[in-house]
Amino acid sequence: MTYKLISNGKTLKGETTTEAVDAATAEKVFKQYANDNGVDGEWTYDDATKTFTVTE
């Protein structure tokens, strides 16, 4: 399945996607992506749209 990340960081804003077997796997990928880009904030997940959002 395709999962989307919306980043509302102070230094990184935008969207990216990943293919993953489940939401937990996608979350690990996205949290590593955010960490690699210096984004640390509040996370939410919408199962209906398969979208994670991180806001700093």
Rank of each mutant, 00 (worst) to 15 (best):
M1K: 12
M1Q: 14
M1T: 14
M1D: 14
T2M: 11
T2K: 11
T2W: 12
Y3C: 04
Y3F: 14
Y3V: 04
K4W: 12
K4V: 12
K4N: 05
K4C: 09
K4Q: 05
K4F: 14
I6D: 03
I6Y: 06
I6A: 04
I6G: 02
I6W: 04
S7M: 15
S7N: 06
S7H: 14
S7V: 15
N8A: 10
N8P: 05
N8Q: 11
N8R: 11
N8D: 10
N8L: 13
G9L: 14
G9D: 04
G9Y: 07
K10W: 08
K10A: 11
K10Y: 09
K10Q: 10
T11G: 12
T11V: 12
T11Y: 13
L12T: 07
L12G: 10
L12H: 12
K13P: 12
K13V: 12
K13R: 13
K13A: 10
K13Q: 12
K13N: 11
G14Q: 13
G14K: 12
G14S: 13
G14R: 12
E15P: 09
E15V: 15
E15R: 06
E15H: 10
T16I: 15
T16M: 15
T16S: 09
T17E: 08
T18N: 03
T18A: 07
T18M: 11
T18L: 13
T18K: 03
E19Q: 14
E19A: 09
E19D: 10
E19Y: 15
E19K: 12
E19I: 15
E19W: 15
A20G: 03
A20V: 04
A20L: 02
A20T: 04
V21S: 11
V21E: 10
V21Q: 11
D22M: 02
D22G: 03
D22A: 03
D22K: 02
D22C: 06
D22S: 07
D22R: 02
A23C: 13
A23I: 07
A23V: 11
A23S: 08
A23W: 13
A23E: 05
A24R: 11
A24E: 12
A24M: 11
A24Q: 11
T25C: 08
T25E: 14
T25P: 00
A26L: 01
A26W: 00
E27S: 06
E27V: 04
E27N: 04
E27Y: 15
E27P: 00
K28F: 08
K28W: 09
K28I: 11
K28V: 09
K28T: 08
K28Q: 10
K28E: 09
V29T: 10
V29Y: 15
V29K: 10
F30A: 00
F30E: 01
F30H: 01
K31D: 01
K31V: 05
K31T: 04
K31A: 04
Q32N: 07
Q32R: 11
Q32C: 06
Q32M: 09
Q32A: 12
Y33G: 01
Y33M: 08
Y33A: 03
Y33I: 09
Y33H: 05
A34I: 08
A34K: 01
A34V: 09
A34N: 02
A34T: 06
A34G: 03
N35A: 15
N35I: 15
N35S: 14
N35F: 15
N35E: 14
D36I: 10
D36P: 01
D36Q: 10
D36C: 11
N37R: 12
N37T: 06
N37A: 10
N37H: 14
G38Q: 06
G38L: 06
G38E: 06
V39M: 12
V39D: 02
V39H: 04
V39L: 14
V39K: 03
D40Y: 15
G41Y: 04
G41E: 01
E42D: 12
E42G: 05
E42M: 12
E42V: 14
E42P: 04
W43T: 00
W43P: 00
T44H: 11
T44C: 10
T44E: 10
Y45H: 00
Y45K: 00
Y45L: 01
Y45E: 01
Y45R: 00
D46G: 01
D47M: 08
D47G: 07
D47N: 07
A48V: 12
A48D: 10
T49V: 05
T49K: 07
K50H: 12
K50I: 02
K50P: 00
K50C: 05
K50R: 14
T51Q: 04
T51N: 01
T51W: 01
F52N: 01
F52P: 01
F52H: 01
F52Y: 05
T53S: 07
T53P: 01
T53M: 08
T53F: 13
V54L: 13
V54N: 01
V54G: 00
T55M: 09
T55R: 06
E56G: 06
E56D: 09
E56M: 09
